[in-house]
Design a protein around this nucleic acid. Structure first.
Lengths: 149, 149
DNA sequence: CGAGAATCGTTCCAGATCTGAATGATTCAT
DNA sequence: ATGAATCATTCAGATCTGGAACGATTCTCG
């Protein structure tokens, strides 16, 4: 009756919603996680750089980073070389939080794909990645991050 | 690097966005399409029934149906048996519009799954449907319909 | 038959959210 | 050295959202 696309979009939303629920007890929303991930992978970035990579407008990043900073998960640092920007770093608490989030992600992954065998899971992952690549989606960038809460 | 879930959510959003773009020249947004589909499949439904099936709150349906009615695609009819409700029907223009939307959907489907062979497409569809069923998602109901514009 | 509860579509309003332009501090170009 | 550009931030207008409330109608059940 209906093809791949509808189910894809339906499942995508479901998955994102469930993940948002999973991290909610940590007091985080999906954009927070995106920030933690990217800063964790590549510390010292400016908010501008984050804005590009996450597709979140700079003025919204301000509030999100304010929150993470207030909770002691992230640190703003003025580099002496360019005092306009903030270099962002994870605090030790931030690193710990990122690990917890990743663990949740692994559980989440298992819960979502519970209906599949290991083999199926692998081919599914491969096919989805192939589609994503062909559609010009960069890995790690989630354009819809903002719409989820 | 990252598993199924992230790509799933990323692709789901992408697919939904592209579809929204595809129907935009028709002057429709995704919730409009949901309404046309359901009324087309089962005419005479009340707005309340639609609300349940689409997960759109009744007060928002009002505006959406107003728009479709103003464009002559849908018709509100007071059944003599219960004059509280509106029975919804597609007009002839509405039927035509629904056909156009379905054609667009087929094109869209092909564009999204261009990276896959016919076989792959079939197994992908089957696996996604299996996951959706296991996750308790009803076919044809898109809970995130509202977040897209 | 009749009074109160329930249903349906609709309106209204307060709060959240988004967008785009503007600001102040700093750095770059030339 | 002056004007343009960059970065983080703020601000204000517009939009969106969700919940409560409303009027009309129908149902329940004594």
């Amino acid at each position: 009756m209906q093809g791949v696309t509808f189910t894809l979009s339906q499942l995508g939303f479901h998955v994102a919603t469930r993940f948002a629920e999973a991290i909610s007890p940590l007091g985080l929303v999906p954009p927070h996680v995106g920030i933690l991930q990217i800063v964790g992978r590549e510390p010292g970035q400016s908010q501008q750089a984050l804005s590009n990579k996450l597709g979140i407008p700079p003025n919204r990043l301000v509030a999100l980073i304010d929150e993470l900073e207030a909770r002691g998960l992230i640190r703003r640092e003025r580099p002496p070389t360019d005092r306009r920007v903030f270099a962002l770093h994870l605090t030790d608490d931030g690193e710990r939080m990122l690990r917890r989030v990743r663990d949740l992600g692994i559980e989440h992954e298992a819960a979502i794909t519970a209906a599949l065998s290991d083999e199926e899971r692998a081919t599914l992952a491969e096919q989805l990645r192939r589609i994503a690549a062909e559609q010009g989606l960069a890995p790690g960038v989630h354009p819809g991050l903002l719409k989820l809460r």
